[in-house]
């Protein structure tokens, strides 16, 4: 595994006032693999995500992202939009954050902003309608169309994103993140609120993203069926600490994990145990 991590979190800590949300957390995410971050509510998973994607500045510790060409970027030194733009880390949100008043297609076009800005000569070429801009715009529409097709929303391309059903919005948000052509895709509870059929479709989508785009995925998830089915590696957190790490099979049998879930929420613990049998 040495040398093939895309993301390496090193002794990350995050404090809010007196509360320690994340405490000395270290883990790696492998390239072209799906890494799951699980744990009971309040374990600090979303805080880790917010540190990785630059919405919070970690109190201490480092986060290193290594691109395919070996170029490494210290994420804790970049802030907000630069992580998405330069480090190519895309994310979704626990409570969906689409642009509700824009169409599904427009959402995917906004995601290609940086590439299109370059193509439009910082707007000036676009303003005069230069041919190079027109072809770039068409390419962007085609990319969006491809993704709409993959998530099964081609027919609803011209509907307002806010009008789509919940499950469609979840998938659209993933497609939007993918339209930024990321190296690492961070998904914050992508299966939350989905029914069994939608969850299965989601698993399929994520596996196909890994296979076809070669995108590395880091996800937070409560739905154990999804986690156990698609993850290559699982990191378990509780109260800001890493309590276990390993393959889904190892995690399922780890007494510490079961105890953490039992202490937190019986149903979730049962879900962890049942998901393998």
């Amino acid at each position: 595994m040495s040398g093939n991590q895309i993301l390496s979190v090193d002794r990350l800590s995050m404090r809010f006032g007196g509360i320690v949300a994340v405490n000395d957390l270290s883990f790696d995410a492998e390239r072209r693999k799906i890494t799951a971050l699980i744990g009971p509510n309040g374990a600090g998973k979303t805080t880790v995500f917010n540190c990785i994607t630059g919405f919070y500045k970690p109190t201490s510790g480092g986060i290193r992202l290594t691109h395919d060409d070996g170029h490494a970027i210290r994420l804790e030194r970049l802030n907000d939009f630069r992580i998405a733009k330069l480090a190519k880390v895309a994310r979704t949100f626990q409570n969906i954050r689409l642009f509700p008043g824009m169409t599904a297609l427009e959402n995917l076009m906004v995601a290609q902003h940086n590439a299109l800005m370059r193509a439009s000569g910082l707007t000036f070429l676009g303003l005069i309608g230069a041919p190079s801009w027109r072809s770039a715009e068409q390419a962007a529409i085609d990319l969006a169309r491809t993704w709409l097709d993959r998530i099964g929303l081609l027919d609803r391309a011209d509907d307002a994103a806010g009008n789509l059903p919940y499950g469609d919005q979840r998938r659209l948000e993933i497609a939007r993140a993918m339209c930024t052509q990321p190296a690492l895709l961070c998904l914050d509870e992508p299966a939350a609120g989905l029914n069994a059929r939608e969850s299965a479709a989601l698993s399929e989508l994520l596996l196909s993203i890994r296979a076809d785009q070669g995108t590395s995925i880091l996800l937070i998830e409560h739905d154990m069926s999804v986690v156990m089915e698609i993850s290559d590696h699982v990191v378990v957190m509780d109260h800001g600490l890493k309590i276990a790490e390993g393959t889904p099979r190892q995690i399922r049998d780890d007494p510490k994990v079961i105890a953490a879930y039992l202490g937190a929420d019986e149903e979730e613990a049962i879900a962890v145990m049942e998901s393998g049998t």
Partner: peptide, 11 residues
């Protein structure tokens, strides 16, 4: 529409 989402998209 959503400033936070914009930042997450690298804008």
């Amino acid at each position: 529409e959503d400033e936070v989402a914009c930042r997450a998209l690298g804008i």
